[in-house]
Nucleic acid binder design. Structure first.
Lengths: 218, 218
DNA sequence: AAATTAATTTAGACTTAGTCTAAATAGAGG
DNA sequence: CCTCTATTTAGACTAAGTCTAAATTAATTT
């Protein structure tokens, strides 16, 4: 096979053992060409700059791959399609990330078959969500059944004002502080907060904050 | 090398890719003999029963490995020493688990070097906590500096009564309900609760519940 | 034995958050 | 014009978290 016909891949994961496993798995597919690996942000910038891969497989754990820097790097590499393969659904900026070139979301527990399928789908510009990921999103009420359609997701329920409130609540601000910030009565903030909790289906500011992190509002 | 001198290993992890990586990593060490793998509880019971390994390397993700059943299986295999290698620190029943034969805790991001070191330590009956794990526990205030000593941990701060309260709070019970349960005034429950929050270093019942799950109280 | 300390208990005052009902205003779209 | 949604304000109530204060009991030390 001509090298130019090969799918150019890079692996970014803080878990070196997982990278080893991915290499082993993908070595059976001769149309795939693994150009390089990265265990942190610095290495990722290097391999992207050096190899310009068609596809990047990324476990985006924010402890090792800074979100803001990641956005910048990926924006500078618009031709690089991204597969997120994560064990940390909690910190997925999943909906926010749809703006970027992230086409697939996998969990680390998904089958090797799904990993290969994801690569093939993404290579032809299609989206792919593994079953684990969809199950997890459904179970955690991040999405409803009617928001899943041909492996694409449509969200989110909150209004502009409510999202403003969520951001401030997530910062740990009190209702009265938020009221000052937004130049409204503290009763208003109170009501918004109540409506948000009901809409999102959580019971406290802490749970709401977790939700906000999950869907990438903050 | 004689087979009887080899360290008999089994791998239990829902992530097949990670198992592939571990196999690849450990294949370089000829004193290690990987007897079998398991991706779920059913398979784990089979490989333990069949191979009676000296060491089990386990990512104990409760979604795939039921905690209660795990305890039972490990109790029935008292000679099997366990290395936990997890990406989900949040759900670690770490202190509770010290009763079992779990001698080492690693994160999936730790270096391959530390994995090998852990196996060697555990093989000679020693405990091992990787740097990531200790950092994480310290950062999340699950332990304080003075609770780390020669790679062993001494906890926990809470009194008997406080632990009773925590359990009931974690069930979502109200102060007045707890007061009835324990035959004390709701003021008492109130004060206990306040003291617990302060002692644990959290700010709400929800955070306390998370803590209780982390340290294995519930 | 006495003193000290930790654990458990009770109490009151205050702030904040969450749950409820109710309603006014403004804008978009049919 | 009517309706629907978003936004706003308000009051009453329950629950939880923060504060101070103190009494009783058990365990430990001196």
């Amino acid at each position: 096979m001509n090298d130019k016909e090969k799918i150019s891949l890079c692996l970014a994961d803080a878990q070196s053992v997982f990278r080893m496993g991915l290499r082993k798995l993908l070595s059976a597919y001769h149309e795939l060409d693994i150009k390089g690996e990265a265990g942190n942000m610095k290495e990722l910038k290097m391999v992207i700059g050096k190899h310009h891969p068609t596809i990047l497989i990324l476990d985006y754990n924010p402890k090792y791959f800074d979100g803001a820097e990641l956005s910048r790097v990926l924006n500078e590499a618009p031709d690089c399609r991204v597969i997120i393969i994560s064990s940390q659904i909690h910190k997925l900026g999943i909906f926010k990330s749809l703006d970027l070139n992230i086409l697939a979301y996998l969990t680390k527990e998904c089958s090797t078959d799904e990993i290969v399928k994801a690569i093939q789908a993404v290579n032809t510009g299609k989206r792919f969500f593994c079953n684990n990921m969809l199950d997890s999103l459904l179970k955690n009420k991040l999405i409803q059944q009617d928001q899943v359609e041909n492996n694409s997701l449509k969200v989110n329920n909150l209004t502009k004002r409510e999202i403003e409130i969520v951001k401030l609540v997530a910062l740990g601000k009190r209702n009265k502080e938020i009221a000052v910030d937004l130049n409204v009565s503290h009763h208003t903030v109170h009501t918004h907060r109540k409506n948000i909790l009901k809409k999102v289906g959580v019971r406290s500011a802490l749970e709401l904050t977790n939700y906000a992190k999950e869907i990438g509002i903050i």
